[in-house]
């Protein structure tokens, strides 16, 4: 009989982890595994996102359960700390260092072989190559954010943990950084990003972990999550020249559950999204009603998030 192969080591493996501070439960029985790719961590304020990140990096220990990164505990195991890049939530940096020095110190304390070159590379990745000799204390929030990112990237880590890395960036920089995250993810790194801005998250990627009140509320592709919310009828807005006629026809054929008309706008809810999608165009054609727009109102990330957090 062949020996049983050992279970695969996931890049991040959280198993039954809880963290309490006195009576306050920050994280409660969270389990998930992550591998290469970009994942967004979502949750309301105080849901336990930062605590989870701190546990992953070993900055704090779980009260119960285990948290492993590359199969090891970052709090106890010195070498594995060299394979993690963390961009923490707090804004503070060593203010008196220049961007170059700050990132170079990160490189050297990580034992990166040619620290000067890696530093240059990391600063170029985050578009800071022109201000390397200015002290980071004089930087704006967006620049500080990118210095943190450069310091997290400089040792070419396997695991990247980025707490709100996009806050304070302007739209151009935001798009550039999101591109960077995607390329890192496709290079086989495990990139875990938290963000408050759902529009940002939707662009970061479709893989999400949602935590609420310290518990894991959902994980996976958020577009698939929407289909799992079966008890939630879909709301759709239709712009048409004859809303009453179209609405009546849809109601009569029992495709939709609810209806609301405002001028040329027809708002409907339906529990039969598949049938609706298949029949809306043929019905409109049959009645000779124009379909100017058909816009689903609640399959965006925000609606999924709202549902998961509030249950509605």
């Amino acid at each position: 009989m062949a020996p049983k192969p050992p279970p695969p080591i996931h890049m991040i493996d959280v198993s039954g982890a809880s963290k309490t501070f006195g009576n306050v439960v920050a994280v409660s029985d969270v389990s998930f595994t992550l591998d290469a790719g970009v994942t967004a961590l979502l949750g309301p304020n105080g849901a336990g996102k930062s605590t989870l990140f701190r546990m992953l990096c070993g900055l704090t220990t779980p009260t119960v359960g285990t948290v492993k990164v590359l199969g090891r505990d970052a709090r106890k195991d010195t070498p594995v700390r060299g394979k993690i890049g963390l961009s923490p939530q707090q804004d503070a940096l060593f203010d008196r260092l220049t961007a170059q020095q700050f990132v170079e110190i990160a490189a050297k304390t990580h034992g990166v072989a040619n620290s000067l070159e890696s530093t240059k590379h990391a600063l170029t990745l985050v578009d800071l190559e022109t201000v390397t000799n200015k002290p980071v204390g004089s930087f704006s929030k967006g620049m500080r954010q990118r210095v943190k990112l450069a310091a997290a990237l400089v040792n070419d880590p396997q695991i990247l943990i980025l707490d709100e890395p996009l806050s304070g960036l302007d739209p151009v920089q935001r798009n550039r950084m999101i591109e960077l995250f995607h390329s890192l993810g496709s290079q086989g790194k495990c990139v875990l990003i938290s963000s408050h801005i759902l529009d940002e998250v939707a662009r970061i990627g479709s893989q999400v972990l949602v935590i609420a009140q310290g518990r894991l509320a959902a994980s996976g592709d958020y577009r698939d999550l929407r289909t799992l919310m079966e008890d939630q009828p879909h709301a759709i807005q239709i712009r048409t020249n004859q809303p009453r006629r179209l609405g009546a026809a849809l109601l009569e054929r029992e495709i939709i559950d609810g209806i609301n008309i405002e001028e040329e706008t027809l708002n409907i809810t339906t529990s039969h999204i598949d049938t609706f999608g298949r029949s809306i165009a043929p019905i409109a054609k049959e009645l000779n009603v124009s379909l100017n727009e058909v816009v689903p109102m609640d399959d965006d990330l925000e609606s999924v998030f709202r549902y998961l957090i509030k249950g509605k």
Binding site: C57, T78, Q90, A92, I105, A106, T109, H110, G111
Partner: peptide, 14 residues
Amino acid sequence: EDGTLVYLWLRPIS
């Protein structure tokens, strides 16, 4: 206090 300790703590140094 300000949270910069992490830049020395989370490194492969003793």
